[in-house]
């Protein structure tokens, strides 16, 4: 069904896709993009492999079994960030550092709790999208067998 060319291309494309997703995530605070978009981009890269190589090969090639773990970890990270401000004695989801305070920069990336929240969103969206499509694919192969 798929030619050798697509099989090679899809594998080659995976790494750049992930890099772009990471860039979209990291640059979210200064330009277009955020955790949600980054999650979907990364997931689309994985799904392309799935479509071209089939569920079995893709499972062998990529650690997609861990997708649910990613989703749950993402949810936990966002919850931790959300409630960490309560422990500091501030209302729910008050990000640190406060407005006007100095922030550590790593290039364009600034280390603030909102970034951690966004990473949680990224993991959840990535895990859930890959997980959902994989569930559908597995249900199909189970129904077929």
């Amino acid at each position: 069904m798929t030619s050798l060319l697509t099989q090679v291309v899809v594998r080659l494309l995976l790494a750049p896709t992930i890099v772009i997703a990471a860039a979209v995530l990291a640059k979210g605070y200064s330009s277009v993009g955020d955790g949600f978009s980054a999650g979907v981009i990364a997931a689309l890269g994985v799904i392309a492999v799935y479509l071209v190589l089939g569920a079995e090969q893709a499972d062998r090639l990529l650690p997609v079994r861990l997708a649910p773990v990613g989703a749950i970890a993402g949810l936990l990270i966002t919850l931790v960030v959300t409630f960490s401000s309560v422990v500091r004695g501030e209302p729910l989801l008050t990000h640190a550092p406060p407005p006007g305070a100095d922030v550590i920069h790593l290039g364009t990336l600034e280390l603030i709790t909102a970034v951690a929240f966004d990473v949680g969103v990224f993991l959840l969206v990535f895990g859930a999208v890959v997980g959902i499509l994989r569930t559908v694919a597995l249900a199909r192969s189970e129904a077929g067998s």
Binding site: Y29, S30, D34, H95
Partner: peptide, 17 residues
């Protein structure tokens, strides 16, 4: 909110809940 992109700031901060 230490951000330059309004949409991201809304998603993760102003409307984070």
């Amino acid at each position: 909110a230490h951000a330059k992109d309004v949409v991201t700031a809304i998603l993760t901060d102003f409307r984070g809940l």
